[in-house]
Design a protein around this nucleic acid. Structure first.
Lengths: 206, 206
DNA sequence: TCAAAATTCAAACGGTGGTTTGAATTTGGA
DNA sequence: TCCAAATTCAAACCACCGTTTGAATTTTGA
């Protein structure tokens, strides 16, 4: 479908995704979106029934994109050793450090939500986060075969936290006082270092 | 000093700190602040030269409070074993999970900043984060005596990430699909678990 | 081809935001 | 005590926000 109305809708979605990722919901105005998308201001209300509706659609698309990105590698993981699978997962989580691509924008949108979740996001999370959390939980279960469910859940979150802090604070970490380099080789080294610590952390504790 | 103008200033600061922590900069209006502080609307411009100026002051106070809180325990840390010191640090970082106190609000304000740092915050961070980062770095250095500076920095950030994700997502983690309990005993268990993983993670890797 | 439906458009609406104003009041030092 | 400075106050100002309106235009299907 490339019906004219679809291209308008699509341009709005793309512009909105970029702006919501960069400035958050409150910081993004309808006028900024339509200016960037080069469509009429009323088009948002016509196609999405208002700013809330547009945001909901962006959120859903971002969520779908992110989980599919990780779940697409779920199959490969089962053919790897636990250590390899974990390292690959961590490397993938750190990708936004290098790329300014779609997945990075999606992660940024979720960062906004993690500070003060909108009702739309809460609903989405409780309904659709299960597959992603399940995948991450399976990843750590291979290191903690005897752990109970709570421990596995905490381990999965713990793992995400280790990666997330670098992604979230990318800009600050490049400057003082940390002065971290974010070139490709540096990110590779970072991924390996985190993997090593995470593996031995989970590996040793019962 | 309890000069009348000082109490006005103080009431504004206290109300602003609460609201900024809860709703962020954009989500907090001048009218909401003065209503909570029970002062006149123009008082903010008189005492702080506008909303920006007020925010800067809140940020500075929060930063001062947090670093002092951690540095106050720096002395105790040197009398502990590396494992004990790390566990105490992690326990302190997880405190906002339980308490709704001042330190918790300060951490929340910084969470807002981590998504889209204001210029004010960037400046503050590059100028005054050194002591705090230094303290955290010393904490991990005892596990990595031979590591270079970059590794130590990454280890410190890595450690903060493990705690931060639980604090930042407190509300979501209590609901589905994670369903984590956030009672005192559960938080104690969480702190111990994270400590164990972090200790063995850092302990094993050279 | 043509009429009905879908879509785009410029303009305006009501509401809220931060800031300014200028007078009224309170404070503090001579 | 008294006056100048500091502080408080209600009201208004102007800019921006999301949304609505109703007409103009384009698309669609028969």
């Amino acid at each position: 479908m490339t019906r004219p109305s679809e291209v308008t809708r699509d341009r709005i979605m793309k512009a909105a995704e970029r702006l919501f990722a960069e400035r958050g919901y409150d910081g993004t105005s309808i006028r900024a979106i339509v200016s960037r998308a080069r469509v009429n201001q009323a088009a948002i209300n016509y196609h999405f029934e208002g700013k809330d509706g547009l945001y909901r659609e962006v959120l859903r698309a971002a969520f779908r994109g992110l989980t599919e990105d990780q779940l697409a590698h779920a199959g490969e993981a089962s053919g790897m050793s636990p250590e390899e699978a974990l390292a690959a997962f961590i490397r993938r989580q750190l990708r936004p450090l290098l790329a300014r691509d779609e997945a990075s924008r999606h992660i940024r949108i979720f960062n906004w939500e993690s500070v003060r979740p909108t009702p739309v996001f809460r609903k989405l999370l409780s309904e659709e986060a299960a597959p992603f959390m399940g995948f991450t939980t399976e990843l750590v279960r291979r290191f903690l075969p005897d752990a109970d469910q709570r421990t596995l859940t905490v381990a999965a979150i713990w793992l995400l936290g280790q990666c997330g802090i670098f992604v979230r604070n990318r800009e600050q970490l490049a400057g003082p006082p940390a002065e971290l380099s974010l070139e490709e080789s540096a990110v590779d080294w970072l991924a390996q270092t985190i993997s090593r610590w995470a593996v031995s952390g989970l590996g040793q504790a019962g």
